[in-house]
């Protein structure tokens, strides 16, 4: 009897210590799967470290990104090699500016262009796709035909013309890149919206008299977020690539500011003088950064869409 009572008590204890089983949302499931993906997790850590370095790094260096070390001017090939003594950890560029500080600034700008441009593309793409998919019919036809047309134009050239004509400000870079990369997003979102809009909760919202735009913003867009997150993570490296491409041509970011593409361009111009550090440091950051983004993107895709593996 005594034994039994103890048993009952412990059982009661163990039962009461368990909170009622909580439902797990799609997001928690996805986060769990993402955390188990080693490549993606390591990439995330590396990327966060890189971003932190790019913001902390400039404080550790005695040089800033635009002032010229006059002691080295014109002699960058012989004296500009990386060294701890004179404070040029990554060496100097051709003009004698500190390469470490420049790589840090370049990293900040490239990431910023990628993220802000993607934000523009996501807002435009999601709204466009959701509106097109939700209203359907003739509006959908016209809107998607327009996307088709835009997609078959080599926008890089138009973008470069834009930069040439309206000046190469960093804001134009953000907006220009964003405005030329929302089309894929719009297509994906439209497809998903078509699948969602016949669900019961949308029907319920319509029956309750909710306005169309409120339905789109409150009921459709939140349910699209999984696929949007996945695609966004793939869009960021794409935009970084595009920006680097334009900056490599010398048509993107304006001196003395710089970005990965501009740094690679500067480094690539001087390789015949044996100043390899001018190319290799930005190249290493560029390649590592893109690797991380691609692995994170893959990880997110697996996390949100496990059946695709």
């Amino acid at each position: 009897m005594l034994v039994n009572k103890k048993k009952m008590e412990s059982m009661a204890d163990s039962m009461s210590s368990h909170a009622p089983i909580e439902g797990r949302s799609l997001w928690q499931d996805a986060m769990g799967r993402f955390m188990h993906n080693k490549a993606a997790l390591i990439s995330l850590i590396v990327l966060v470290t890189m971003i932190a370095t790019s913001f902390i790094g400039p404080y550790l260096s005695p040089w800033d990104f635009e002032s010229i070390d006059w002691a080295l001017l014109g002699n960058a090939a012989e004296m500009g090699a990386p060294s701890i003594e004179n404070g040029h950890y990554f060496g100097t560029d051709d003009l004698g500016r500190d390469q470490f500080a420049r790589v840090m600034v370049g990293t900040q700008i490239s990431l910023m262009v990628g993220i802000v441009g993607t934000a523009v593309a996501v807002v435009v793409g999601v709204l466009y796709g959701a509106i097109s998919g939700y209203f359907g019919g003739r509006l959908d036809n016209v809107m998607m035909r327009f996307v088709d047309i835009l997609m078959s134009i080599p926008y890089m050239f138009i973008l470069i013309i834009l930069f040439v004509m309206f000046g190469r400000s960093i804001y134009l870079l953000f907006i220009g890149l964003g405005l030329f990369s929302w089309m894929d997003m719009a297509r994906i979102v439209r497809g998903q919206t078509l699948a969602i809009k016949h669900k019961e909760y949308i029907e319920a919202a319509v029956a309750a008299g909710v306005s169309d735009f409120k339905i789109i913003l409150k009921h459709i867009v939140p349910n699209l977020l999984g696929i949007v997150v996945v695609y966004t993570s793939l869009l960021i490296p794409g935009l970084i690539l595009t920006e680097s491409f334009i900056s490599f041509l010398g048509l993107g970011i304006q001196e003395p500011l710089t970005s990965w593409g501009a740094l690679i361009n500067d480094g690539a111009k001087t390789i015949q003088y044996g100043t390899l550090w001018q190319l290799l440091f930005p190249l290493a950051f560029f390649v590592t950064g893109l690797f991380c983004f691609f692995f994170i993107g893959d990880g997110l895709r697996d996390a949100f869409d496990p059946k695709d593996r």
Binding site: S244, F248, G261, N265, I271, L279, L283, F286, F294
Partner: peptide
Amino acid sequence: TIGAQVLPNFVMAPILVI
């Protein structure tokens, strides 16, 4: 294929020349 993904033409060109 994963490696080549992060080697666009403007990265490949200087590397090849080196």
